[in-house]
Amino acid sequence: MSVKVDGYKSSSIFEQLKVNISDNEAKKKETIKKVNAIFEFNVKNNEGKEQIWTMDLKKGGTVQTGKGSAKPDIIINLTDDTFVELASGKLNGQKAFMAGKLKIKGNMMLATKLDGVLATIPKAKL
């Protein structure tokens, strides 16, 4: 099932993440073991609309739109642009958090594991 939502640049990143996570079964198990958390992203786009994506790296290893059935371990509020910057690899989670671009509810330590997951998104090379 597609996790595409029109009007969000983050949408194609979530689609990629969904594939990247479930792509390889052994890798998926490894990621789940390492991260072991459910992330809920509340993404606000330039029009001020909000959309939730849930990334389950605890049991299912899935990405879905909207809230998941289980309670998230961490809820991250951020803008569409910030998410794209995070995925493009140059803004890291720590910098974003320090700059107040991420609002975190729940277990803050889990946010540190976000960079590793986002690193699976391919980047342009000089």
Binding site: G89, G93, M108, T112, G116
Partner: peptide
Amino acid sequence: LFEDVWSKSNFRE
């Protein structure tokens, strides 16, 4: 502690 965890988990950095 927070930063430690962060840097450890962040291989790219």
